[in-house]
Write a protein that binds this DNA or RNA. Structure first.
Length: 240
DNA sequence: TAGGCCATCTGGTCCT
DNA sequence: AGGACCAGATGGCCTA
């Protein structure tokens, strides 16, 4: 797939004239955070932005602005790469008319295309995110159902310890989720809703607030609701 | 032509 | 101080 950025000839590449000058009318009269109408690189006097100290020459300010713009561009491109990777994984689940992640899942979302990505067009960012969320919910509810069935079968039998103790199975499915391996210590409390030893599931465990796919209640425990995703990079700006 | 989607620029804020 | 992150604004491209 060709990157979108390469398809857009807006003439605002690295080091172009446009990059160094304020776009006409861009911030004039604006009310948002960028509404000061200032362009630090070109301003003189008291309106100069504190980010560009007075002692910097005009060229130095332009160079600084160019650096900041370049970093931001790189950041957004990295974000788009990650979005493309997610989109690549999710596309098969969006293309089926009977997709369990789409309308058939009872989770139709205004941003989610009905059944398929329209006319073969690529998924939009928000559709990709909605689809991925639904996929995660589906996995959680499937796992819960699997545990329930295993619990029924396990009366007097042997059931994989990991499943009944709430451990998340090591998945290598199409989602390519980076999940922890079963060998890793999970450190999670057993799921209270699991029918251990064939014990009946408490009534209150089916009255959870948030609903899963197709109206299936989601288990409130950390195991069922939250897969152990191993992030390659910190996701929170506060975890550095 | 209107609306959706997107890339980019920009200033503000917070963190290291 | 410098970098990362965020959100607002703007304009281009595309489709219905």
């Amino acid at each position: 797939m060709q990157p979108v950025s390469s398809l857009r000839g807006n003439g605002q590449g690295e080091g172009t004239f446009h990059e160094l000058l304020p776009r006409s009318g861009m911030v004039a009269g604006g009310t948002g955070s960028g509404g000061s109408g200032s362009f630090s690189g070109g301003l003189q006097g008291p309106q100069r932005h504190p980010k560009f100290p007075r002692e910097l020459s005009l060229e130095e300010q332009q160079e600084l602005r160019r650096k900041i713009n370049s970093r931001e561009r790189k950041r957004m491109q990295d974000l788009n790469l990650a979005m493309d990777a997610l989109r690549e994984v999710m596309v098969p689940y969006a293309s089926s008319p009977t997709s369990s992640l789409g309308a058939g899942a009872g989770l139709q979302h205004p941003y989610l295309p009905l059944g398929a990505s329209p006319n073969g067009r690529r998924l939009s960012k928000i559709s990709t995110l909605v689809l991925a969320r639904n996929y995660i919910l589906l996995l959680g509810s499937s796992l819960q159902e699997m545990r329930r069935l295993l619990g029924e079968v396990s009366i007097g039998g042997t059931v994989p310890h990991l499943l009944l103790t709430g451990g998340w199975p090591f998945l290598t499915g199409p989602g390519q989720l980076l999940l922890s391996s079963p060998e890793q210590p999970l450190g999670l409390a057993p799921c209270s809703s699991l029918p251990l030893n064939g014990a009946p599931v408490p009534e209150e465990s089916t009255a959870w607030g948030s609903r899963g796919v197709a109206g299936t209640p989601l288990c409130p425990c950390r195991v069922c609701r939250v897969p152990r995703v191993v992030h390659e990079t910190p996701t929170s700006r506060f975890q550095k």
